[in-house]
Amino acid sequence: MIAVAVDPAPIDIGAEYAAIAVGGAGGIATFAGLVRADDGVEALTLEHYPGATEAALVALAEAAVARWDLTAARITHRVGRMVPGETVVFVATAARHRAAALEACAFLIDRLKTEAPFWKKETLAGTERWVEPRGSDDVAAARWNDAL
């Protein structure tokens, strides 16, 4: 029901979808986050905290399943070096009805951005810089603090 993965291999969206499209759900929501070429970014390198990262993703997925009565939740996050257009993260939620799947999917990506220990470094024009956290991400994560 819950599956999380942190892997340097490219994310196979078709395989991810096939894995959640079983088990009698009435609706499936998915989110894919891609590397943007903002400011001429040539590559993005993702670092994480092995062990703690997977535990954080499982905790998020468990919270979503409990809150929205999901039939399944998957989070797959890539690490290592990737280029614009490649998928960094894929989130999928399955539920009996669409509202639960859609809300839970948004919850997972919003909270992942502020609670899972990943760090992004951009490569552009031959130099590297660490990505700074954005206040808008904190706002997006906090909206789920309120009861629905």
């Binding site: 992942l112 899972a116 990943f118 956290p133």
Partner: peptide, 9 residues
């Protein structure tokens, strides 16, 4: 572990 604010997703 000591680290900067996280920036995944």
């Amino acid at each position: 572990a000591i680290f900067p604010p996280v920036t995944g997703g």
